[in-house]
Structures are given as C-alpha cells and as structure tokens.
Design a protein around this nucleic acid. Structure first.
Lengths: 348, 348
DNA sequence: CTGTTAGCGCGTTCAC
DNA sequence: GTGAACGCGCTAACAG
C-alpha cells in the first residue's frame, strides 16, 4: 500500500489537489459514479470500480473533508473536551478514544479548558458549530451538568463522570465511568483485613466527580464493619495537601490513625514524606497507580484509562451511526479498576 | 427520514443551525454584507454592522466551519501527529500547542500513530487532504525524514526533533527541540565535579532523535576531561532495560562504574532497583523529571514540554499567517532544560 | 447500473 | 457602501 515515488511525485507536485470532478473526467465517467466508488456503493459494477480506483490511485486523489461534510452532513470528526487534568489521565484517555476513531476513519478534535468558564464556553462552541459529529466530555466540571442542555445537540458522552439522575435535559447522554465504589470497598476490606481499625480518607476536591464517589464509597464501606473509627478530610489534590494535613492535623503522631486512604498517588506521597519525617509508620494507599507507586511500594488503584476512552468513543459511534436511537435514554457503563497491593498498606 | 432542504443531516430535534443567509434576510440585507460584517470588513457602515451583529447575537449565529473552509481555503484547524510516546510527554506538548491555537481561535486535530508505518500513513493523509492549515510532527520516527517530501505541502514543524541537514526536501520545515547537548554536559560536569571518574551512559533506542543527541553529547562531554573512563550501552527505554543491563553486564558489583547516566527516569529506576538488590551505591541520573524522581531523589533533567508545544505552534502560525515566507528556510529553535540535582548523584 | 441536477453555507469577485 | 452571481468539492435525490 506504500506509495511509489514516481506516481506520487506527479500527483502532489501540482499545487492544487486533484478533485473528484477531475477524476471523473480522467476516468471518462461522471462525478456521481466516482463518489459512489469512493463510498463503496454496491451498485457499481466491478469493472467501473476498478477503473476508477486505478485513476484515483494514479493521481493520488484525496476526498476533500470539508466538501464532504458540507454536502453530506457528517463531519468525520469527533470532539474531545477535557479540563486541565493530570497528564497521565489525559493522555491515556485520548489514546483510547483515538484507537476507536482511527479504526473508523474519523479524526479527533481536542480542546483543553484552561480554567473558569472555559469548559462551558468550549462546550457551547463545539456542540453548536457543527464541527464534530459527537463530543466526548472528559472530566467535566460538575456544574456544567447542572445547566440546561439545549435540545438539538449532537451525541454526547461523559467520560470519567456520570449524569446525575435529576438532570432532565441530559437524559440522552451516555456516561462511562470507573467503579469507584468497588475499588474503594476493596481498599477498605484490605485494610480492615490486615488489622487496621482507625481509618482516615483524605478526599479530593468536591468539584471532581470521582472525588465525591470515592468519599461516599469510603463512608459506605467503613460502616459495614463494627469497631472501625473512620474520618474524612476534604480537598486533597497534590502532594502538599497530603503533607500539610499530616503536619497540621496530626502533629502529634500518637493521634495518628492506623491507615490513610489518599485521594490519589500524589497525596499519598505527601503523606509518606511526612511520615518519614516523623519516623512513624502508618498504612497508606494511593489511587492512579502512577510510576511512583511501584518503585515506592505504594498500594494503589489502577484505572482502565485507555478503556475509558475506547468505551466512550464506542458509545458515541453507536449513536452517530444510529445503532442506538438518538433519543434513547443514556446508558452508564462502569469499568473495573484493579487494586495493586504493595508494602505501604501491609503490616508495619 | 424527512429531508427538508434546511433540516439537513444534523441529528435533529428540529433545531437546525441558523445560516448566514437567514441572518441576511432577518437583517433585511444580503449574504455578502453579513459575511463582511463577520470578517470585520472596514467598508461596512457602522449602522449596518451594529444591526447585523444584533441579529446574529439574537439568533446565536455560528459560521459553518466547513463552508468557510471550502470557500475560503483556510480550515482553522491545526494537525498534531504524534507517535505512541509516554503520556507525560504527549500530554504536556499537546497542552502547549493548544494554548497557542486556542488563543487564535483555531482547533487541534490530534492523531496518534500506533506503530509501524502508521506515522507515515497518517502524515500522508493529514498533509494532503487539506483538513488542516499546518501540521506539528511530534517525535517523528527518524526514517520519515529520510523520505522525500513533496513540494506544495502545508507548513510543517518538527517538535522534539530537528531536520537533518542533508534532507534537501525538508529545508523549509521548522524544528523545535530541547538543548540535549547542554543538559548532558551539565550532567557530566556535575558527576565529574562530584568526583566520579568511570561513567556509563545507558542510551536510548536509536530510532529516537533525542537518544542520538544525548549519546553524542555524552561522548563529547566526557572527552573534555582527562582521566575519565566512559562507556555507552545502547537501546534502553523502560525500567527492565535498566535492570537487565545491570544484571547481565554488571553482575559483579566490583566492575561497576562510579556513575550511570540513564536515558530517562524509567531506566534510572531500573538501575536503582538492581542497585538496591545488590546493596551497593552507584550514582544515577535520569531524564524527564517525572513524579518518581522527586520522591526517590533521582537527579533528572526537566524538559520544557509545554514550551515545546507552544513554540511549535508559534512557528506554524508564523508561516500560516505569512509572517514568515512559505519558502523561507526552516529555523531551529532550541529550548533550555533544567537539571535537578538530587541525592542519587551526590557522594555515597 | 449510471448520468443529471440540485444544493450544502460561505467567500469573493464583480457591478451598482 | 451594498447586492448579485459564481464557485469551492462533494453527496443525494432524481431520472434514465
């Protein structure tokens, strides 16, 4: 399938690309026929098809995406809107989406919201200007889901987030998320099973969907066990948040809990740093299974990031291609995490 | 499916986007006038302009990107083609590019090559089908630069890579890269200054531009010092590569060098792991300054990833907007890294 | 099976 | 200053 240098040089050397019309003339046929050949219309005879393909190959014909979109109503582009999240998360999810879109000859339009109302602004633009056939909203700020969605929008899917039940206008939107509850239960079971009794969850910022889910799951999990003392401290996102809480809230090591369930790996690292400073062991778990967890032996949850992307794209295409009705109620897909138990949460 | 002339294609709960034509009628004027208003044509009277703007605002008019591209020749889209690189790298570079493109109302079309000839295939497609106004090639496989580039292509810029001097057909392509040489020299100076004499560089795969640069820089740097024993071992990319080399090549700790300059942080971690297994200290440096380096105290090089993206986009826009002639010879911009010296490379 | 005919929404000459 | 007309490259009815 690789291009032969000679035929290629000829094709591209002219400044303007070859058009369908020109192919038609060169092949001694009409535009429609060529158009049908391109789209594999079964009604075209094998002979004509082969002849036209030959001409197209020879001249390096490339259908013009814009003309096609204008006339056909399908853009061949999928939008991805994401907030300014951690690079590991972002990259892997995009990779997953790309895997699916590339497979169906689509292209990815990526936008990153840089704060404030940016997400909402970009959402409006992308969902209304007809530039994309569908839109994946990665980690949208929760307040966006509170707004009313205009009818007549393109297919939408929430990634790493789920539509709240009370959001009426978002009812046709699919959601793909990870099973925060199950993973959190596993963590708590593991900690309790190992013998820890006093647990603290350093929860994430309330603006993040997963943070809320994990907090609820933590509270739910600890309540299933008698004799467990549990507490939650909010708003932890980066390393410093973890260290600071340890310093300020637990300045006296004797008041420390047995185990700390951090919102993510960064926070867990912060806790560990302070722990070393003080020189007392406390069990710690992280979340994200980043590169630091393995080398440091931090128990952590690995999320199926690429899977999130792939599944989101799949949902989108199901609606774009009409395999799922546009007005069908949104489905929520939940992907499983895997818990990696390491030394940081075993017995001291 | 009922297809009225104006309920065209789009997934529709009835609400088809309002067109320039409709705005013209509602404003009691013609398409051309509205078009001029949109593009701030100075010949339009203030009165008409205001009137038309009001109508547009009232009806939420959005210019159709595809129609505009078809008629006007500018797509408003920038392509980003990247190989399947590490997520940290990928995400930050994209973020940088996005920063610039968003500022100029452009959109980002991202494609990820998934191996083999994928990069070349995608490159051909994106550079020829007119879907983007310019193309950023992030970390292209080196053999791509060996191929002849067709004339008449869109503006191109290499990111995290530089055009080889002998590539005639790529002479109009800009390059943005980091100063591998300077950073490597800093590392070597630091190691030698600290007292290490026998250095080994665990180089990266030869297919990666930066890997070759760093290897050359290493060899250059060590030659500037008398009494230094240096060696290079090739083809290290992930953790296991580092550990394996230590196990196989340096099974006897007494033959160990004083210091190991790893291609990246992962390799450095592999070395450290083996070091701990054997229980002997050797100085180690990484590259990328990933999350694991700070917590583990690994000396590492921080690259200006976002800067790479921003600068690449800037170069592209300079050519797209004609601030730099299309046929002007490509410039190479080199961005500075910063070396973070930590305990892993200090005296044992 | 294939050719003909309309547009898709907009930029850009031209005239007025 | 403004409007009418044409065309960008392609798809999708209609005819044969």
């Amino acid at each position: 399938m690789t291009n032969t240098p000679d035929s290629h040089g000829r094709a591209g050397s002219g400044k303007s690309p070859v058009t369908l019309q020109q192919i038609a003339e060169l092949a001694g046929t009409s535009k429609s026929t060529v158009s049908r050949v391109v789209s594999n219309d079964p009604r075209i005879s094998r002979a004509t098809s082969d002849r036209v393909w030959a001409v197209m190959k020879k001249h390096g014909y490339r259908p013009n995406v814009f003309a096609r979109a204008l006339a056909g109503g399908k853009t061949g582009q999928i939008g991805v809107l994401t907030s300014n999240i951690s690079s590991g998360f972002f990259a892997e999810v995009i990779r997953g989406i790309d895997l699916q879109t590339a497979a169906s000859q689509n292209h990815l339009l990526v936008s990153i919201a840089h704060g404030g109302d940016d997400y909402a602004r970009l959402f409006n633009e992308l969902s209304l200007n007809g530039q994309v056939d569908g839109l994946v909203l990665v980690d949208p700020p929760l307040d966006l889901l509170g707004r009313d969605l205009e009818s007549g929008h393109i297919p939408l899917v929430l990634c790493a987030c789920a539509v709240p039940l009370e959001a009426e206008s978002w009812r046709c939107v699919d959601s793909v998320t990870v099973d925060n509850q199950r993973a959190m239960h596993e963590i708590v079971e593991h900690l309790v099973g190992t013998g820890y009794r006093r647990l603290v969850h350093l929860a994430g910022p309330s603006s993040i969907y997963d943070a809320g889910q994990r907090k609820l799951a933590f509270l739910d999990a600890v309540q299933r066990h008698a004799g467990i003392v549990a507490d939650v401290i909010e708003n932890h996102l980066i390393r410093d948040d973890g260290s600071r809480t340890m310093r300020e809230r637990y300045s006296d090591p004797d008041t420390w809990p047995d185990a700390i369930v951090a919102f993510n790996d960064s926070v867990a690292c912060g806790v560990l740093a302070d722990m070393h400073r003080v020189g007392r062991f406390v069990a710690v778990t992280g979340w994200d299974n980043g590169p630091e967890t393995e080398v440091l032996g931090i128990t952590s949850v690995e999320m199926p990031l690429t899977g999130l992307g792939e599944e989101s794209a799949r949902c989108l295409f199901d609606r774009i291609h009409g395999k799922v009705e546009q007005k069908a109620m949104g489905r929520t897909t939940m992907l499983e995490n895997s818990l990696h138990i390491r030394s940081s949460s075993l017995k001291a």
